[in-house]
Design a protein around this nucleic acid. Structure first.
Lengths: 190, 190
DNA sequence: TAAATAGCGAACAAAGTGTCTTATATCTAT
DNA sequence: ATAGATATAAGACACTTTGTTCGCTATTTA
């Protein structure tokens, strides 16, 4: 990839990220991003079709790291119970999230956060699906998935509201604690 | 209140509601609302300062009914356990939500839904706060609140995705089931 | 070093915003 | 029923934003 493209792309991401600190997504104009990134108008449109596309790519970038790198981690160890495996996985996700603390705080806590959360939830849904594939319980399986996704997403929001001060282990522990029931009983395969 | 105002207001709400069926909030223009409601431009601005204010008032309208009427209900009965009281309360909320099924489906399931959900969560947070005032557990109290709010909000989203076919009792039951642990143990005061 | 390509900057039409004014229609209270 | 109050219509307005296009320049890659 051309170095010029890389630089421009980074400049746009950076400018966008900084703007999100103070303003909500909907009220940020393409013009402002262009000015902040110090690029030409046509250059922006050469990179991104719309402002929405920019957000989408930014989210994808972040989440690819957060959720993907973990696949290797998983192969390394072999935990006895599903509960332990999930715990490890959640911790890793939280670690990666914290690496993106600056962006995350902006994306989650501004009013633009909802768009971001939707992306996040999609990834979470996939993940939990894989961890609950042998589930047989007294509530519908897809209901439990929705519920867990919502609970964990809100867990992260809470964490961010605490400036991510508690450790990922602590947070993951909290989440497992409030889910004791179906974790230990029947939700998670061994 | 002047009949003309009422009619105009309703026309705007109706038009807005219909537009939300197909498009996401951010992409709907004031002009479109004006055209759909068949009113004059200045008339819209006489009623609402911005598009955001319109959404806010619409949400407030809906939630006032959903959460408020319940206060009387509560006084009527006197349930022995906190768990039962919460169950009843959740059921009532779900009933009222279903009364607004048309609007809700649009607001929750379109991409505009996140804005709406934030309003919903604020109300939920207040409600759960009242039900957990004597809580003493192994996770921070406000964390549990966040978690429950997220879980219940997602529960409703799931319900809507099922066309609100399951009964409110069923839904409330599911929610209580996945929360068995802290409901029966220590979260809820008797 | 040459050919390809990314960026600049200006201009553009189109669409949307929010405000204001004047005239008309409709309400409410007497 | 009428008079005064007020909501609405309709149009104009300056302004902002958008997305596209063009010719020119600077940079990169092979």
């Amino acid at each position: 990839m051309d170095r010029r493209q890389q630089k421009t792309r980074q400049a746009i991401f950076h400018a966008f990220s900084k703007l999100l600190e103070t303003r909500r997504f909907e009220n940020i104009t393409v013009q402002e991003i262009i000015d902040a990134a110090n690029i030409g108008r046509s250059t922006f449109y050469a990179h991104f079709e719309t402002k929405d596309a920019l957000l989408r790519e930014m989210c994808t970038d972040i989440f690819r790291h957060v959720f993907e790198e973990h696949l290797t981690q998983e192969a390394d160890h072999d935990y006895s119970t599903g509960e332990q495996r999930l715990l490890q996985r959640l911790e890793h996700i939280l670690y990666h999230l914290r690496e993106n603390q600056r962006n995350l705080t902006r994306l989650l806590c501004t009013e633009s956060g909802e768009l971001f959360m939707n992306f996040f939830k999609e990834y979470l849904y996939d993940m939990f699906t894989r961890y609950l594939d042998e589930f047989q319980g007294d509530v519908p399986r897809d209901y439990l998935l929705y519920y867990l996704v919502g609970g964990f997403a809100e867990t992260v929001r809470w964490w961010v509201s605490k400036d991510m001060q508690p450790s990922p282990e602590e947070i993951a522990g909290y989440f497992m604690a409030v889910n004791e029931t179906h974790n230990t009983r029947e939700a998670l395969p061994a």
